[in-house]
Design a protein around this nucleic acid. Structure first.
Lengths: 236, 236
DNA sequence: TGATCTTTTGTACGATAGTACAAATCACAT
DNA sequence: ATGTGATTTGTACTATCGTACAAAAGATCA
């Protein structure tokens, strides 16, 4: 606002760099990394293929920049919400608040960057499924700290549950979260139109409710596995 | 055993067609569809690229055949286990048996085809994330019936829970299941070596335990969402 | 206005993709 | 052993990929 923009920040079209980032994010998130060509991205952004190379050097560089854009704000938001959640007195309410602090930023905008964090979360889900190397490196070193913070917080709310179980359950939470964003239509289809899989608020409520209950499940003791076959094959 | 094999069933190498299918399954499941070339598959199978075209015509045809191979046996197995589970008297035990009937075939072999259903389930997870068209069509028309059968069975065990909630929770189950197969290393990493994400038996027990609790969570009433913000931002 | 720097365009290059196809090779019945 | 059909090989074609780069166009300030 105060300073005047230098030539470095000006561009012919409103903001071609941002348009390319947004187009790439959308296309990667819905089709995967390899299925999308640089030309596809350029066309969707109304740009020339050469512009992509100019701004991001390589296709990997473009993906890297998308991650850089979102990781910081999203983790910041999660940390803030987690800090607030930890101040909740009632243990049951606190657990729910912690889960919500983890889930909400993934569905809504991690920052205000062009329409929200749901698209970025979906992108992460797809990259994770594809085993994308660039994504794998950034994710491990960017999200593991936050994941540990949440696991620790949940563990404090449920001290009688082994940490291992908490890890598994939070892993399931992330999987459920990812899948909800990847194929929301499946929910609409299986519920025969009664539920809308694309409704973020509805998905959040369902996910939080189910996950809190999952975390509160009894600890998994080592004797349990022996029960498995007996229960399944029982005919009475 | 009885009949003697005709020339139609013989081949130079033990079974090149099967080798190609197995190699493709493995590569697709770990790297996605587009990242794997026909040449990659041929090399992994010890075959010539031309052989792939000969046996499966196109790359899509190869994927299609992988699905055809597994879908039938896997759904059959699930149906059998579901039928057995529905005969369990105790409601709590029955719910667990139903969930187990859904989960177990996804982790262990859906048939005895070359090492198990876990690889195929992972493949489905990856194809679903990539939005693969070939897979999407087969999945919807092959698995939806089974999914509905499970949802109905669970609904009968939990009549006080709205069907919509059951659909959401079973969707979360599938997401958790997929994610456990896609990135098992994440569990090992976050648990600091205390848990092994690649251990199918352990994953199944954790998943069943958590999911049963999730299904048993109270129904989501429409008033709940209003509580959301209050809980998160509460400072006391 | 003209010099200078940034951005966009257009095009081209080498690599690799999926697939087609003829020739070679193999298994087996006769 | 020999002919026949199934399979495998080798290779080639076309399309498209990521990327490089020179030229054009636009913006900025003396």
């Amino acid at each position: 606002m105060v300073r005047k923009p230098t030539s470095k920040e000006t561009a012919r079209k409103p903001n071609m760099r941002e348009a390319i980032l947004a187009a790439a994010e959308e296309l990667f998130a819905t089709n995967g990394f390899n299925a999308v060509s640089v030309r596809d991205i350029a066309q969707a952004a109304g740009a020339n293929p050469g512009s992509v190379t100019y701004h991001f050097k390589t296709k990997d560089g473009l993906l890297l920049e998308i991650y850089r854009r979102h990781c910081g704000p999203m983790n910041l938001r999660r940390s803030e919400l987690l800090a607030a959640a930890k101040r909740v007195r009632d243990l049951q309410d606190r657990l729910e608040a912690i889960v919500r602090a983890y889930v909400v930023p993934a569905f809504t905008s991690g920052s205000d960057l062009a329409g929200g964090g749901a698209r970025f979360t979906r992108l992460r889900a797809v990259m994770s499924a594809e085993g994308n190397e660039v994504a794998r490196k950034i994710i491990a070193q960017t999200f593991d700290d936050t994941s540990h913070a949440f696991i620790d917080a949940i563990h404090e709310s449920l001290p009688h549950i082994p940490r291992t179980d908490i890890v598994w359950r939070s892993h399931f939470l992330l999987g459920a979260l990812y899948y909800s964003l990847v194929t929301p239509d499946r929910v609409s289809r299986l519920s025969r139109g009664e539920a809308d899989g694309s409704d973020a608020a509805g998905a959040i409520e369902q996910l939080v409710q189910a996950t809190v209950a999952a975390f509160q499940a009894p600890a998994l003791d080592q004797a349990a596995p022996a029960r498995r076959r007996a229960v399944v094959s029982s005919k009475t």
